[in-house]
Amino acid sequence: MNVVYFAWVRERIGIPQETVETDAATVNDLIAELRAREPRYDAAFADITALRVALDQELSDFDSPLAGVREVAFFPPMTGG
């Protein structure tokens, strides 16, 4: 699946997007896999209360299933307006 990062999450991980091969069942499972990869991921996902997730461009929850999802986005709380 395509995983995209925005704002400080993008800066901390160092890339705007990547393709991830995963069998993760939920967003939380995917985060656990990413955190185990490298310290920069571990740092970015250290406090998920500071993060939001969108699945296929819809705001979602961290316990949401990933079955059929093509794009996961991680970003901080939005500051539009």
């Binding site: 925005f6 704002a7 970003f75 901080p76 939005m78 500051t79 539009g80 307006g81």
Partner: peptide, 14 residues
């Protein structure tokens, strides 16, 4: 609209 655009539209200000 303003309340929702602030926290539910995916923009980030630096």
């Amino acid at each position: 609209l303003m309340d929702y655009l602030k926290s539910r539209a995916p923009f980030w200000k630096k």
